Simulated scan of single mutants.
Amino acid sequence: MDPESVRESERVPHGGESDSDVLDFSANTNPFAPDGVEAVYADALEDSRRYPDDEHPEFRAAAADFAGCAPERVVPTAGGLAAIRLIVAVTLEPGDEALVPYPSFGEYAREIQLQGATPRFVAHDEVLSTGVDVLEDCALAVVCTPNNPTGEASDLDTLEAFADRCADAGTTLLVDEAFLGFTDLPSAASLEREHVVVARSLTKLFGLPGLRAGFAVASGDSLAALETARRAWSLGTPAARVGAYCLCQKEFVIETRERVASERDRMARALEGRFDVHPSDAPYLLCDVGDRDVSNVVGTARERGVAIRDATTFRGLEGHVRVAVKNRAANDQLLAALEVLDKADREDDRER
């Protein structure tokens, strides 16, 4: 990292609710975890009295099968964000530029700035059409699929064409697939190219965000750089064991995808009566609240025991909130909490 840039940087706001009495729709995590996780964790805890096997062969094999690549291309990390930091760190130098989508995950710009580089922001729905003339000035380009917070996933053919232009420009392409596991879409790991690096998160799909397990997928010199730079013992024994176990729970993944797709459609139909809802392939919905005050929307939901994300913290967004897609009972509680807004609107209309 660039020491001067570190001193000038700030933390990035995120979702996540620490109050266990509040239903958390501000973080996009699965409300369920696979059966058997507790036993795997307990066994791993006993083995944690010694250092972990830093090669993590079982974890690499499970991650490779899940992403559709060879095990030797997998680089274990302590969560998807750790993979992003590692990729950015081995790619950028002070003074470099990096292409970054907006609105999107705020940590991209922060990690780029921590290296002393400069983010060049491009609208999230225009990134994949960026030409070589722009890419030639960028050492790194970032794509988030499905994009957070808007929710749309990138078409792999379009992504491949963009990867070709990145190769022509000498630009490394970072594809963040933190939420791709909630879909049945193929991973960019299938694009086995030296300049394409993928970051994956396990803990959102498997409902264990505090576990911190993820991985990167790379090839050639990029893979060698990541393997050399990654911290020793960066993935603890419990995270590696539980992560490998979860990645093999294919029935759980199928059931999760079906539930999320069904509930997301149901929630979108219900919310469209109140907000302008962005189409989504992800386990969350971005909602334009119109002329309502976002803080009032967030506060009203919280008064009813539900935390939702103030999406105005994302670059380029005003008047938006983001809500996660959970299980049916929880989703009904969210919808009931937001019904208060309709009643308030009707009362305001009567007063006028």
Rank of each mutant, 00 (worst) to 15 (best):
H56D: 09
E192N: 08
G170P: 04
V142M: 06
R269S: 14
A307Q: 04
R200S: 04
V37S: 02
I112S: 04
F179R: 00
A117W: 02
G290N: 08
R264L: 09
L223M: 10
A329C: 09
V142I: 14
R49W: 15
D155Y: 13
E8T: 14
A324W: 02
N30Y: 08
D125M: 06
D342I: 01
N331L: 10
G116P: 04
A141W: 04
V289Q: 04
R264W: 04
E192M: 09
A63C: 09
A244T: 04
E111A: 13
E93P: 00
E263C: 10
P279M: 09
H56K: 07
S26I: 05
E272G: 11
A307G: 04
L226N: 00
N296M: 13
D19C: 10
D168V: 14
M1G: 13
G15P: 03
L338F: 08
L159N: 01
E17T: 07
V242E: 02
P76W: 02
R328W: 12
R110I: 07
L286Y: 02
A261Y: 01
F121S: 01
D293S: 14
I254D: 15
P103S: 05
E38M: 12
S295I: 08
V196Y: 00
A213E: 00
E58M: 12
D53S: 13
A39I: 12
V134A: 13
T312H: 07
R11F: 15
E55K: 09
R7Y: 13
G131Y: 05
D310Y: 06
L128Q: 07
M1V: 13
V122N: 04
A27T: 11
D265M: 13
A67N: 00
A123D: 14
P279G: 06
L334I: 07
F179D: 00
T145Y: 06
R322Q: 15
A117G: 07
F59N: 03
L223T: 05
D157N: 13
E8I: 12
L208C: 06
L114W: 04
K343Y: 10
P52G: 08
R259D: 08
S20M: 12
P279N: 08
D24Q: 06
A42H: 11
H124V: 09
L156T: 08
G220N: 06
E177A: 05
A44F: 06
V325M: 09
S104D: 14
G95M: 12
G68S: 11
A123Q: 11
A240R: 00
A139C: 08
A261N: 11
L45M: 15
L140Y: 03
S26R: 01
P209R: 05
A329E: 15
G170W: 09
R120P: 04
E93R: 14
T158E: 15
P119Y: 05
A330V: 10
A61W: 06
V289E: 00
L156Q: 07
D293F: 07
N296A: 15
G170Q: 10
L92S: 01
A324T: 10
P52D: 06
P13N: 10
V88Y: 03
E177I: 05
G36Y: 12
F162Q: 00
A33K: 12
E58W: 10
R241N: 01
T77H: 01
A188G: 05
Y102M: 09
E17S: 05
T130A: 14
R322Y: 08
R315K: 12
G131I: 09
